[in-house]
């Protein structure tokens, strides 16, 4: 008999870094609860150069999409 099914058939991958690099001109505004361009005060998600939400497609399967930590 072969080894355990789940262990043998699991997809194995290198542990990568999930760190998100935010450009230095953006800062998190704790009072507003969103990131802003500190020069123009535009919310980052509305800023053409800003980082946008990642889609489900870009999640690494961790069981909680790396957001539950």
């Amino acid at each position: 008999m072969k080894e355990n099914l789940v262990i043998h058939q699991a997809f194995k991958y290198e542990v990568g870094s999930c760190k998100i690099e935010i450009p230095t001109n953006y800062g998190y505004n704790a009072a507003s609860g969103y990131w802003v361009n500190e020069i123009t005060k535009t919310p980052m998600v509305r800023d053409p150069e800003g980082i946008k939400p990642r889609t489900k497609k870009e999640d690494i399967e961790t069981g909680e999409d790396n957001k539950g930590e």
């Binding site: 099914l5 789940v6 262990i7 058939q9 699991a10 997809f11 194995k12 991958y13 290198e14 542990v15 399967e61 961790t62 069981g63 909680e64």
Partner: peptide, 17 residues
Amino acid sequence: DTALFKINDKEAFFYTN
């Protein structure tokens, strides 16, 4: 349950097979 585990130096995830 979600099967996410470490095996040697790698992480592993069990999809539906």
